[in-house]
Amino acid sequence: MKSKEIITHSAAETQQVGEQLAQRLPKGTVILLDGDLGAGKTTFTKGLATGLEIKQLVRSPTFTIMREYHDGRLPLYHMDAYRLENGGGADLGLEEYFDSDGVLVIEWSQWIADLLPADYLRVSLKRADQEDEATRTLTLTAHGTLFVQLVATLKRPADE
């Protein structure tokens, strides 16, 4: 299965999906995280960190472009290309993180599209509708062959 949709009803559930996913990720994983401002990208990443047994507080990497967390099962590299809309990604040596010893999460990856590797997992978060502030649709899509199996075995929070 290349793609799967999961509906979450709270920030805690969104976090749980990230946590469950992180427990199965091999090193070198690249995750592209899509969603509007306030869609829950940081919340999802906090879940990934928990799943990687990281105790450090996950904070937004928007201005620093990258935050690294090394106290878990695998290092977590949290990248945000939000400020690179007008380019500059190549300048910062970001491609050096793509073949990492850990898990790399990239927000606003469209601004560094020409730097991205062939295999990655795309996670997009969408709000169900404007009146409902809590519900999100998470779509996980495997690009390349590496993550097809992983997507297929991922459970919805309610199934667990």
């Binding site: 940081t42 904070r59 937004s60 201005f63």
Partner: peptide
Amino acid sequence: ETRDDAVGETYDKVGRT
């Protein structure tokens, strides 16, 4: 310290909205 977003970042994202 901030537990999530820095204040300057919040200014920018609110401004963008």
